[in-house]
């Protein structure tokens, strides 16, 4: 073997090697220009060769794939870090907004107390039960349903029946595991109502028909068609501002109300016990609200 000199002379190859070199180049030319493309394709597309090559390539490419995946993961981590920083800023901003909202809520509550204005919210309901309708009475003289919850579940006489947030009726009698709900259509049903957003007050009276009537509408103001009807909260039997339905002017002095609650097809309803407001106002709160 020759020495490992980096200054290999031009004539490093022996005469025999030079002949070999020329012969092989010629052979390559023959392969390229003489051998038919079809035969070439057969050699190249040999199944065994291709699968062996694929397997070898897979093994060899493993470190490259691993490096590529690592680079991808690092760039992904960087993106996550950027997002994290962005979210951190947003979180700080949201925290500020939350404290601001809490302050406003407190101030709002205190001002309401000062004005003795009450808005009904789920926190005013002492308990809430989902009841299944077991039986229903429907006719000119009675409109009521019997449900599967009673005193054991916290239901009492006077509990309110709601369907999708709209008033359906009031519990008139209750047993251990069942209760009767008098619907708004019942001829004995009377509910104090008001026209939403106006001072107009009236009484909603069931009459055994689909639409209850509006009685004793007080005030000079004319009631418009499709005006919203909500509970007034007068007398404290029902909480104020619970949806009931909308006005339907059927001509003359008769004013009917189309109920929001789907009474005919109802299967389940909510029974809630109304927690009456004590009306007491904390003097400290009033002072701070005044400030």
């Amino acid at each position: 073997m020759r020495s490992h000199s980096f200054l290999t002379p031009v004539a490093a190859l022996s005469g025999r090697s030079k002949i070999w070199l020329v012969a092989l180049i010629l052979l390559a030319f023959v392969c390229l220009f003489v051998v038919s493309p079809r035969l070439q394709m057969q050699v190249l597309n040999n199944g065994l060769a291709v699968s062996s090559l694929a397997r070898t390539a897979e093994v060899i490419s493993y470190p490259f794939t691993a490096i590529s995946n690592l680079v991808k993961k690092i760039s992904k981590l960087r993106r996550i870090e950027d997002k994290y920083n962005l979210l951190k800023v947003e979180y700080e901003s949201l925290l500020f907004l939350q404290s601001y909202a809490e302050r406003l809520e407190k101030e709002n509550r205190l001002l309401r107390e000062v004005l003795q204005y009450r808005i009904e919210s789920p926190e005013n309901f002492a308990s809430r039960q989902v009841a299944r309708v077991l039986a229903r009475a429907r006719g000119s003289f009675a409109h009521n349903v019997i449900v599967n919850v009673g005193t054991e579940q916290g239901v009492a006489v006077g509990s309110i029946a709601l369907h999708r947030g709209a008033l359906l009726g009031i519990v008139t009698s209750v047993g251990n595991s069942g209760a009767r709900v008098r619907l708004l259509r019942d001829p004995q049903s009377r509910v104090a109502i008001k026209i939403e957003g106006r001072a107009k007050r009236a009484l909603l009276a069931g009459r055994g028909a689909r639409r209850p009537l509006l009685l004793f509408a007080r005030g000079e103001e004319r009631i418009k068609d499709k005006a919203r009807v909500v509970t007034s909260g007068d007398a404290g039997v029902l909480p104020p501002d619970i949806d009931i339905g909308s006005i339907v002017q059927s001509g003359g002095d008769v004013i009917e109300v189309e109920l929001d609650a789907e009474v005919d097809s109802i299967e389940k309803l909510d029974l809630v016990s109304y927690k009456q407001h004590s009306g007491d106002i904390n003097n400290d709160d009033v002072d701070s609200a005044g400030q």
């Binding site: 070199l21 180049i25 392969c31 070439q40």
Partner: peptide, 16 residues
């Protein structure tokens, strides 16, 4: 040539 599916003889000429 086999790996890159080029025509047989192309790379031998270039390499040699």
């Amino acid at each position: 040539d086999a790996i890159f599916a080029t025509e047989i003889g192309l790379h031998p000429i270039i390499w040699l």
